[in-house]
C-alpha cells in the first residue's frame, strides 16, 4: 500500500489507501497512477498472450511465413487451400462438432446423478466426492487409463462386453475408424461429468423448497414437479453446462493427444489437435494460423448462440459479481 514509507505524509497515505477518493488533484493523480500500476501486470499479460497473438495470428494467416523465411503476402491462399483442398480440415471440423454435440449426453447423466444426490440420503457427500473426483485429475493420466480400458486384447471394456455375450471377440476401439471417436468422447464425458453435476447441483440447491411443497399440496406428481419447477429453474445451470461442453470440445487436446494422437487417419483429430500437428510437427505456422482463425470464429459464433439461447444468463459474465 501507499502509506507508511516516511512519517510526515503517513496519515495522508493511509487515507489514500483503500477507501473512496478525496477530492484534490495531486492525490487524485497519485491515486490514478496507483490504479494503473495495479492493473498494469494483468493487462500486460493479457496483451502479450491474448490480444497481440490474436492479431498476429490473423495477420499470419494471410502470409507465407516460416521461422527462417521472411514473410510474404499470401492473400487468401491458405483459406482456399483449407476450404477447398484439405479434406482433413473438414474432417477435424466435423469431429469437433460431433464432440460438441455429445455434451448433452453427459449433461443428461449428470442431471440424473445431481437429482439423486440432491435428496437427503445418507452418504451423499461421499457420492459427490466420487463423482467429482475425475474432473480435477490430470487429463494425461486419464487418457492413459482409458487407452488401456479400450485395449483390444486386454482392455476391461472388451472383457465385459465379451462376458455379457454382446460381442464375440475384442473390438480395437481406438484403432477403428468407426469406434475411435465415440471412445474418446466417452472418456471425455467420464472426466467432465462430475463438473456438470456440481454445476447442476448448485442450480438445484438454489430452488426454494417451498415451491415443491406448494406444488405437492396442489397435487402435482413428481414428474410434473420436475417439468414445471426444476427444469425451468435450472435452465441457467443447464446452459452453463452446454457452454462448458462447447469450450471442452475446443480445448480437449490432452486426451486426444495421449489416447490416439488424432488417429487412425484423422478419425479423432479435433481442430485443436490438427492445429498442433500442422504448426508444431510440420512447422506450417502460417497454414495453422488460418485454421486457428476459423476455429476462433466458430467458437465465437457458438458462444454467442449459447448466450442468446440462455437469455444472456449463462456464459455471460456478471460484472457486478
Amino acid at each position: 500500500m501507499a502509506g507508511g514509507a516516511d512519517n510526515a505524509p503517513a496519515l495522508e497515505g493511509r487515507r489514500r489507501g483503500l477507501a473512496g477518493l478525496i477530492p484534490g488533484s495531486r492525490k487524485r493523480s497519485r491515486d490514478l497512477a496507483l490504479i494503473w500500476l495495479f492493473l498494469a501486470p494483468s493487462l500486460a499479460i493479457f496483451a502479450i498472450y491474448r490480444i497481440v497473438p490474436l492479431i498476429w495470428n490473423a495477420v499470419l494467416s494471410f502470409q507465407f511465413w516460416s521461422p527462417y523465411k521472411p514473410a510474404e503476402f499470401a492473400g487468401l491462399y491458405h483459406y482456399e487451400e483449407m476450404l477447398f483442398y484439405d479434406d482433413a480440415f473438414w474432417q477435424t471440423l466435423w469431429n469437433t462438432l460431433i464432440f460438441m454435440a455429445s455434451a448433452p449426453v453427459g449433461i443428461v447423466f449428470a442431471l440424473a446423478v445431481a437429482l439423486l444426490v440432491d435428496t437427503n440420503i445418507r452418504g451423499r457427500n461421499v457420492y459427490r466426492t466420487i463423482f467429482f473426483m475425475s474432473y480435477p485429475v490430470m487429463t494425461v493420466a486419464v487418457g492413459i487409463i482409458w487407452q488401456w480400458l479400450f485395449n483390444e486384447n486386454v482392455g476391461l471394456i472388451n472383457y465385459v462386453l465379451i462376458e455379457l455375450g454382446i460381442i464375440d471377440r475384442g473390438i480395437p476401439f481406438l484403432e477403428s475408424f468407426d469406434w475411435a471417436l465415440p471412445s474418446v468422447i466417452l472418456a471425455s464425458i467420464w472426466q467432465v461429468i462430475g463438473f456438470y453435476m456440481i454445476i447442476l447441483l448448485t442450480g438445484l440447491q438454489s430452488i426454494p423448497p417451498s415451491l415443491y411443497e406448494a406444488a405437492a399440496i396442489d397435487g402435482a406428481n413428481a414428474l410434473q414437479r420436475f417439468r414445471r419447477i426444476t427444469l425451468p429453474l435450472i435452465r441457467p445451470s443447464l446452459f452453463l453446462c452446454f457452454v462448458v461442453g462447447i469450450i471442452n470440445s475446443f480445448t480437449a487436446f490432452d486426451l486426444i493427444f495421449v489416447m490416439t494422437g488424432g488417429g487412425p487417419g484423422h478419425a479423432t483429430d479435433l481442430l485443436i489437435t490438427y492445429i498442433y500437428s500442422i504448426a508444431f510437427r510440420l512447422s506450417k505456422f502460417d497454414y495453422a494460423a488460418a485454421i486457428t482463425v476459423v476455429n476462433f470464429l466458430l467458437f465465437l459464433a457458438l458462444a454467442f448462440l449459447a448466450n442468446r439461447l440462455a437469455g444472456g444468463e449463462a456464459g455471460a459474465v456478471k460484472t457486478g459479481g
Binding site: I51, L54, F250, A279, V317
Partner: peptide
C-alpha cells in the same frame, strides 16, 4: 473500457493464440 477489454479477452481461449504465443 478496461472492463470491456477484460471481458473480451475472456472470449479468447488460450488455445487459439498458441502459435503467436509460442513465437512471442
Amino acid at each position: 473500457a478496461t472492463i470491456l477489454l477484460f471481458l473480451s479477452c475472456m472470449m479468447i481461449p488460450f488455445q487459439v493464440t498458441i502459435i503467436p504465443a509460442y513465437l512471442i
